[in-house]
Design a protein around this nucleic acid. Structure first.
Length: 314
RNA sequence: GGGGAGAUACCAAAGUGGCCAACUGGGGCAGACUGUAAAUCUGCUGGCUUACGCCUUCGUAGGUUCGAAUCCUGCUCUCCCCA
């Protein structure tokens, strides 16, 4: 068994568990934590021990075209235990947290027929939440509409879109982060696609799952984590990340390739920076990513999932 | 040995008598997050304080001045040019 310096057990659905009583004793164990903390290794070991497959919860490792830069499980790990959502989708198809929720719940239902405990592992906080508490029934992304809005953002500026949102959906204007162009665009997109306001789709209630959820948060001292990240990036380069990126260059605009490790090397291939600079940027951006992951889960610790106030910020 | 330039916060770099606890960038820290989430966005970054505010900072030791990161002098160090 791998040595994990620190990990914290979170009684995530403690209250729910009491209410569930005999309904089900099925349990989903989710290994979460920042990138490069050792989730994959830990999950594989645990899965073998429990006779469970590993269900990945990673928004980038699902893409079969991405083999090096996303630090997916090794071929040995993949053959040691059955994995789901690794290399299962293509960068050419738009994938989202909403789809992940649907596909994963279907899979879990199926797997729970033959397993009592299932191991899930991943670093994508929104995807983990989609499984644990669900995403409200928002309309799916409307890409052509979104592109139109992005074009408007570019031409007229954010303020113009904000003003429009203020007129069409005052509530969203006052509650979402209007300094974030992505959020403003999405709110408008939903309005134009459905004629209903973005805010009207929110219901602030977590969905109910008929299985127990336990989260294991793997953490490491910051210094050690950063050292591991640096080492891993160097290793990826040795494994041929640059070659991989080169073959993916034509698809660089795909959302799936807006990914740490790929973007920076696209810039290098454009001649915008040296290879050394690109590698340093990958390391820096991975550190920042890890920090964001920790921020995301920090709020989970000690919170109760049914409390709407956790999600309904002022 | 002679001449010149410079030493500013974690780093780089502006500031050249009061509007300076000090522009800006990097790095770092913290936060947000409902179908792009490895995305996108926000705040902080000398100390103490909830805040008003107070205290200590611009190589170092003095000096001039009501007032100095800014002017003067000594010292230390760095860089460049000539020997």
């Amino acid at each position: 068994m791998t040595q994990i310096p620190f990990f914290r057990l979170m009684n995530y659905q403690k209250e729910r568990r009491d209410n569930l009583n005999l309904m089900s004793k099925k349990k989903l164990i989710i290994i979460i934590g920042p990138t490069a903390a050792g989730k994959t290794e830990y999950a594989v070991d645990l899965a073998i021990k429990l006779g469970s497959p590993v269900i990945s919860c990673d928004s980038r490792q699902i893409y079969r075209e991405l083999r090096i830069g996303t630090a997916p499980p090794t071929p040995e790990q993949l053959s040691a235990v059955k994995h789901y959502f690794i290399f299962s989708h293509s960068i050419h198809d738009l994938y989202t947290a909403g789809k992940y929720e649907v596909e994963t719940l279907a899979l879990l239902e199926d797997l729970f027929k033959t397993h009592d405990s299932l191991v899930m592992a991943g670093g994508s906080g929104l995807y983990v939440d989609a499984v644990c508490r669900g995403i409200d029934n928002f309309p799916p992304a409307d890409i052509p509409l979104r592109e139109t809005l992005m074009q408007r953002l570019k031409n007229d500026g954010l303020e113009s879109l904000r003003m429009e949102l203020r007129l069409l959906d005052r509530e969203s204007y006052e509650t979402i982060d209007i300094s974030n162009p992505q959020r403003v665009v999405r709110a408008l997109e939903v309005f134009f696609a459905t004629g209903k306001t973005f805010s009207s789709f929110k219901n602030f209630k977590s969905k109910t799952r008929d299985f127990e959820i336990e989260k294991l948060f793997i953490e490491k001292p910051r210094e050690e984590l950063y050292a591991r990240i640096n080492r891993r990036v160097d290793l990826m380069m040795e494994q041929g990340l640059l070659e991989e990126v080169r073959t993916l260059y034509p698809y660089r605009e795909r959302p799936a390739l807006k990914t740490v490790g790929y973007r920076e090397l696209f810039e290098y291939l454009d001649g915008k920076c040296s290879i050394e600079e690109a590698i340093d940027l990958i390391k820096r951006n991975t550190r920042r990513y890890a920090k964001r992951q920790m921020t995301w889960w920090r709020r989970d610790i000690g919170t109760v999932i049914d409390n709407p106030s956790v999600r309904n910020r002022p």
